[in-house]
């Protein structure tokens, strides 16, 4: 039994039952299939995370976000500026304790290059209720190509623990026609 040494000393030469062999073959092929799914989705799927990343200091990224916001600001909401960039533009959102800044207004069906980075600790970009979740690091500028397919008011929740104010960290993205 499993608590004693194998009965047959040459256990590695024993034949394996057909049912077990069949199951091993099925499980192996299923693994190959699941692996191929991820590769295939990179080629054919529409939901893949971009690998475009740059090193950036928090101060430099903040300056870029401020210039962007100034250029495209259309109004304010709860004292936070709302930026409405032209379709296809590079858009910026920074995270810091405990806010996402600025608010964005995007057009449905248009593709944007969204730049994300953190001013301090790690944060979690969690777009709700769409449910897109991306980790945000300081010193790294992640450029995500994003195409909204719904209109409405969407929230950006922080889903990486970032201290006592973590649960107050909410940002906003509007999508209009």
């Amino acid at each position: 039994m499993a608590l004693t040494s194998p009965e047959s000393k040459v256990w590695w030469n024993e034949p394996v039952g057909r049912a077990e062999l069949t199951w091993i073959a099925i499980a192996f092929l299923w693994g190959v299939f699941m692996f191929s799914m991820m590769v295939w989705w990179h080629l054919e799927g529409n939901q893949n995370l971009s690998n475009e990343v740059y090193r950036v200091s928090p101060a430099k990224f903040e300056a870029k976000v401020e210039a962007f916001t100034e250029k495209y600001k259309v109004r304010e909401e709860a004292d936070i500026p709302v930026a409405k960039p032209e379709p296809g533009a590079d858009v910026y959102m920074l995270s810091r304790l405990w806010e996402w800044w600025p608010i964005l207004e995007l057009k449905k069906g248009q593709t944007y290059r969204l730049h994300l980075s953190s001013m301090d600790w790690q944060h979690g970009f969690s777009l709700q209720p769409v449910n897109i979740n991306i980790q945000v690091h300081p010193n790294l500028e992640h450029v995500i190509t994003l195409t909204p397919t719904q209109t409405g008011e969407f929230s950006v929740v922080c889903n990486e623990f970032c201290g006592v104010g973590h649960h107050t960290m909410v940002g906003r993205i509007h999508v209009v026609d």
Partner: peptide, 12 residues
């Protein structure tokens, strides 16, 4: 642990 599906589930 599927790379793309994780986008919907990470840190939830």
């Amino acid at each position: 642990g599927t790379e793309q599906i994780n986008i919907m589930l990470h840190n939830t």
